[in-house]
Every structure is written in C-alpha cells, then in structure tokens.
Amino acid sequence: MLIQCICAFLSTVGYCFIFNIPRRHLIPASFVGAAGWALYQYLTAQGESKIAACFAAACLVTALAELFSRICKDAAILFSIPGILPIVPGAGMYNTMRAFLARDLEQTAAVGYETILMAASIAVGLLVVSSLLRIVTAVASLVPTRTE
C-alpha cells in the first residue's frame, strides 16, 4: 500500500513535468494524485466496486484541488488535472481491448461497461464536488451581507 502511494506520487510528478505545472505547485499537485489513488486502492481492497471507488477518489481529488487552489492562490485545474490522471481507467481500457482481441465478447462487454462507468463516475465526481462548492461559496457570499 505504501509502495502504491509512493508510486502514485512519483507518477503524478511525472504528469506535472509533462504538463509543465509551476514548480512551486509540484508537491501539492502530486499529493493530490497520491491521495486519490490511495483512496481508490483502499476502497477496492475493502471490496467496494471500482466504479464507486473511482467516484469517491474523484470527489477527494476535486475537493483537495479546490483546497490547494485556495491555499496556493492559483487555478484549481493546476491541481485537479494531474490529480485525476492516476484514476483514469487506462487499465480497464487495456483489458477491454485484450478481451475483445481474445474474441471473448462477454468479458469485453463486462470490462468495457465497467471502464465506461468508471470514466463517467470520475466526471460525475468532479461535477458533484464543484457544484457543492459553488453552492457553499454562493451561500457564504450571502451571509455577510445579511449580517451587515
């Protein structure tokens, strides 16, 4: 598990290099990636479905990205893009192809379905947390004017 986290951290560092993240954000951005992957691994090890794990990890990544964007005063995508990449279902896609090539249509359908739902659940996770945050900030911006 620890090795998994370190690997996730270092591979997110790799994404930071490729996408040219400002150097001062390198560690927070990589931390977001490692945290997302750790949660995903933990949940799948607990017997949760990959889809639910992806959703939870995407939620965590978005929340952390928004948090770091507040702390470091920079755009949230600087943290969410490298953070989200480890949980994008590359392995699912690959396994779908392998099953397809092996003429195992049942397996292709099963794995392919799971992969598409994983990608969708990442999108939904991003959507849910950003929307919640919008509601919170909108409400928070109302409160001070009322108390004045």
Partner: peptide
C-alpha cells in the same frame, strides 16, 4: 518532460 514520461510509464507499471 522526458523524465516525466519515463516516470509515468515506469511507476504506473508498478502500480
């Protein structure tokens, strides 16, 4: 960036 690409490929393989 090359280092980045190498890191992504190799560490994901371990993951």
């Amino acid at each position: 960036r090359l280092l980045g690409a190498a890191m992504i490929a190799s560490f994901f393989t371990v993951m």
